[in-house]
Design a protein around this nucleic acid. Sequence first.
DNA 1: TGTACATCAGTGAACGCGCGTTCACTGATGTAC
DNA 2: TGTACATCAGTGAACGCGCGTTCACTGATGTAC
Lengths: 251, 251
Amino acid sequence: MASPNAAPRAAATARERVRAELSREIKEEARRQLAASGADGLSLRAVAREVGMVSSALYRYYPSRDDLLTALIIDAYNALGAAAEGAVAAGKAGPARDRWAAACHAIRDWALANPHEYALIYGSPVPGYRAPEATIGPAARVPLAFVGVLRDALDGGEVGGTGAAAGALLPVTGPLAEQADALSAALAQSVPGPGEAAVPPDVLVRAVIAWTQLFGMISFELFGQFVGSFEPADALFGHAARQLAAFVGLH
Amino acid sequence: MASPNAAPRAAATARERVRAELSREIKEEARRQLAASGADGLSLRAVAREVGMVSSALYRYYPSRDDLLTALIIDAYNALGAAAEGAVAAGKAGPARDRWAAACHAIRDWALANPHEYALIYGSPVPGYRAPEATIGPAARVPLAFVGVLRDALDGGEVGGTGAAAGALLPVTGPLAEQADALSAALAQSVPGPGEAAVPPDVLVRAVIAWTQLFGMISFELFGQFVGSFEPADALFGHAARQLAAFVGLH
DNA sequence: TGTACATCAGTGAACGCGCGTTCACTGATGTAC
DNA sequence: TGTACATCAGTGAACGCGCGTTCACTGATGTAC
């Protein structure tokens, strides 16, 4: 803001404010079209039409269709990440297992409310589109929210240790153990976060399994693989969320 | 074949054989384009060009682009189903847990070898396309292959009963239990199959969880969510397949 | 075996559509002195 | 406060593309007697 080579004036000029406003408005309309008809239904010309501009004018705001799509992808990751983080934070007082399940529910709720945005980030890749690096950070928020739950639980002694329950758990060995160790180390140093305990590899691997299960189940629900069996999937989802939190070893 | 109102001659006429041949050739070319550039890259005109026909001629074989797509979807489901069934059958002599894991590996291998066909059936729905009833049967082959493993295992006493291992397993109750009961009953009567034992609801639910985990993990691998952590995912996959077979309760 | 007719496969032109992107331009808004 | 100039937003026309589908047509292949 007040840095030497920032905007010419400390406050945003009128032009800049209008520009930011219109950028937002264009993105909003694009999101509306995405929600209505999916990523393929997103057309620059249609967005321009709706915003009341000529199509070429959009190029003053987004250099190409892909850039607009990238903005939507980043927003979607951030919205979903925020939902997960919010659920975790809201459950601060309760047991770790509940926080984990709450994050799962928040993610599902968001996905059901925003199916096309979900499909955009977790469905088949958009053909011809290559996700830029800027999406990596926002995409990591959901997994990091789960890691946050794990760390808090580790700090509070809320992981594993029931003994009997561990009977059906397979040991993590070989190359998988190496990958998990490396990830655990990377998390410990790059994300100082609240908890200080490093996540043990076997817990991390079980968490990854739970994480993939979550998104597999949501995708199946959204993409129609449950028709005629577990539809509506609310009961299945609630059970699975709790079951997998238990599987991870959370109390 | 020899029924009264079948084809005019018992044997297919030359014309019919040519027609069947060309239908196959068109579908093959369509599959090639699908594999090369995904469902959106599939264009009737391009297929016609490659097959050496004028685009309108395709309409003698497939009434519309959607019908061609449907044919590809059915083939994909059948190919994947056959792969899963084959893996199960090949493991007949071994323990149930291995048969389950073998099916998982067969499915993943197929998905990695045919990513666009996988995306076609398990990725985000193709916009504007509505899957006809004819896809239901082929789509059921994979889940039914898993059910087959469960039934054989139940017949052979290869499910559950370890006691200690069941500690981390949550009971299946309420509406979920009802859905699972209904599905179990439907399976028992509509698919007589090899095993005679009905699948207990809690086993069925755990199997569904394992099933969704499998596809979640494959989708994450294929769609790039593991980059930088568990890539390559071979070790993770092998572990997860065995771990979830154990989770289901298979020996 | 031969002729008259019906069926079918494939052609080529056309319809109507929408798309992403570029480019030279006109005004309006801002900046410097 | 006023003028000269630079920056920027938005216009309108155009380029070049490919698509799915329809339709009247020409030949070739089959069928019936």
